[in-house]
């Protein structure tokens, strides 16, 4: 299975977000989408999930345009974890994860659904919290619940919008390790919108760097996150350091002056 978008454009009203964008996603890989704020990373992910309708171009899933795929079928293939969830009426962790089984359910929850939910809870170390209302959880715990729900959909491709943005260091690593595992051992495609370039660089197989005119660079993290590229896109100077088996970008100047020069 393969997913890609072919020369898609999207605009909010008259404000074009990107045009003629083509991006491919491979199974067994963790793909990061990076770029400055407001450049359209989240929008791109939503276009992939058919949450937004593209202005032009086509999003393909296994060679089929996603707009022609039945919603339940799509829901069983693509999982989506939004940046922030706004739950008004609190439900238990178990119920929140069970929601991911919606595409498979008629009315009654089958034995199999329960087993899947329970194994996911187990895997994400959420079993202890199963009966807790989700409004009483910490940010990290809620993020894990959201990922657990998406996993309960048994998706082949999982999209996550900034899954580490509200998490502490420990939870960041925990979540990224989990995503890595999903790609490596279960041959799923994991697509992550990321701001932290170091985290992206450490865990991704492939990164897309978006700029003002759409896709700016793509490829392995080491090829994309170069001093030149970062300067062009973010307008800052970075020092690249190899340490502890990883490659790290260290910003070295104030950003404000440079942004002015560029604009």
């Amino acid at each position: 299975m393969k997913m890609s978008c072919d020369r898609i454009s999207f605009a909010y009203g008259d404000n074009s977000v990107f045009e003629d964008l083509s991006v491919g996603i491979e199974l067994g890989q963790l793909t990061s989408i990076t770029g400055p704020n407001g450049i359209g990373k989240s929008t791109l992910v939503k276009c992939f999930c058919n949450l937004y309708k593209v202005r032009a171009g086509i999003v393909y899933l296994d060679g089929q345009a996603i707009t022609t795929i039945a919603p339940d079928e799509l829901a069983r293939t693509l999982g989506y974890v939004p940046q922030k969830e706004e739950t008004v009426f609190s439900i238990s962790v178990y119920e929140a994860v069970l929601l991911g089984r919606r595409p498979y359910l008629k009315w009654k929850v089958q034995q199999r659904d329960q087993e899947i939910v329970e194994s996911i809870l187990d895997r994400l170390k959420l079993t202890e919290l199963a009966e807790r209302p989700i409004t009483t959880l910490s940010g990290g715990e809620r993020q894990k619940v959201a990922i657990a729900r998406a996993l309960a959909q048994e998706p082949t491709i999982l999209f996550l919008d900034e899954p580490t943005s509200n998490l502490d260091l420990n939870h960041q690593l925990e979540v990224m390790t989990l995503l890595r595992e999903l790609a490596d051992h279960e041959q799923r495609a994991i697509v992550v919108v990321m701001h932290d370039l170091n985290l992206a660089s450490r865990f991704s197989d492939r990164v897309y760097l978006l700029g003002q005119n759409g896709l700016f660079a793509q490829g392995k993290p080491a090829d994309v996150f170069t001093r030149e590229n970062i300067k062009k896109i973010y307008g800052i100077e970075v020092e690249i350091i190899n340490a502890a088996g990883g490659r790290y970008l260290i910003p070295i100047v104030k950003t404000t002056q440079r942004v002015k020069e560029i604009s």
Binding site: L51, E73, L78, Y80, P82, I91, L99
Partner: peptide
């Protein structure tokens, strides 16, 4: 139920 988790989540779960 799905709508309670957000419109986008609901849409991703196959709901119009």
């Amino acid at each position: 139920n799905a709508l309670n988790a957000g419109e986008e989540v609901a849409a991703n779960l196959g709901i119009n």
